[in-house]
């Protein structure tokens, strides 16, 4: 049975934006509501397809967990790893107050 197409509302977009950690501003909500509506309407064509019993493909190569010997080897120094940070102190990334 074909499922009906869900209508995307401004509240849905605000909710998804929260999950995506994006503070949408101005007319972005209206614009994204329309864009997502159009795209999901197009994607809805998949409903026509019966995928009962079909295995999902998340990866095309027959590769599974790849292991290597657990020997330490040279890696980035702390100051190199934090060199791109907006704020770093004593080799740590600095973030705004959490608690």
């Amino acid at each position: 049975m074909t499922k009906p197409l869900k209508v995307i509302t401004g509240d849905d977009v605000r909710y998804i934006a929260g999950l995506s950690r994006i503070h949408l501003q101005g007319d972005e909500i209206q614009q994204l509501t329309k864009n997502l509506e159009d795209i999901l309407h197009y994607v809805h064509k998949l409903e026509k397809l019966d995928v009962h019993g079909v295995e999902p493909t998340s990866h095309v190569l027959p590769i599974h967990s790849v292991y290597r010997e657990d020997h330490p080897r040279p890696s980035l120094k702390q100051d190199e790893a934090t060199a791109g940070a907006v704020e770093a102190r004593n080799g740590f990334f600095k973030v705004p107050k959490v608690i």
Partner: peptide
């Protein structure tokens, strides 16, 4: 980028 992040998150 926002459209794709939002669509993927959805």
């Amino acid at each position: 980028a926002k459209r794709r992040i939002m669509l993927g998150t959805y």
